[in-house]
Amino acid sequence: MSNGKVITAEQLTKRFGDFVAVDHISFDVMKGEIFGFLGANGAGKTTAMRMLCGLSLPTSGKATVAGFDVFKENEKIKKSIGYMSQKFSLYEDLTVKENMEFYGGIYHKSDKFIKEKTTFILNELHLTKEGNKLVKSLPLGWKQKLAFSVAIFHEPEIVFLDEPTGGVDPVTRREFWNMIYQAADRGITVFVTTHYMDEAEYCSRVSIMVDGRIEALDTPSQLKKTYEAASMDEVFLRLARKAVRAAD
């Protein structure tokens, strides 16, 4: 992790046949940063993220995650990252505690670690009473917060969040972002894709993808200055209008 860079990408590209989903993107993510990855639907955010997580093999380019090469050191990367998918990543027919026990086990954590961590998280989320309830009986907002807790259960260096707040009310979204801040304060680097522009304001730095390319990358305030915009929303619209690719 030289120079405090936890993720580096150089000319990273993914093709599906003739279609270039991600087109030579380059960026660095610093330790402890909340890195926002913005783009319209179909801009290539998820594909880029999947390459960094080892779910998809890049066609060309270079990238390292937590200091490990995405081509060769996939297994090492997996130990250092957490991931929360766009879809729901908890088991609905398991209780809250069972979910945590399962994910702890998958990451080779000891029984003691799992127990302490579970108690800690349930306290933090004020869910102590709900520990033995099935996940499906909880409201969506709680599930989402739990899913995030589970994604960082094994204390990874980096956590990847793929549109984590879809379908959640603004209050819960605010609470969710507080959790992200807390994780970042503990030194966990957060890599988050979103298309909510208010969320972009919360990020340390933001990259905006249009048609598979990174069109802009800076802090939210700097971006607003550069594009002479009052909000991130305006910045985004100005950039995204250039898109030729149809949204999916």
């Binding site: 997996k78 991931y83 929360m84 766009q86 990543s89 908890l90 998958i106 080779h108 994604a151």
Partner: peptide, 11 residues
């Protein structure tokens, strides 16, 4: 359910 992805990202 999307849990398979999480599994594949895990070690």
């Amino acid at each position: 359910m999307g849990t398979m992805e999480v599994m594949l990202v895990s070690p």
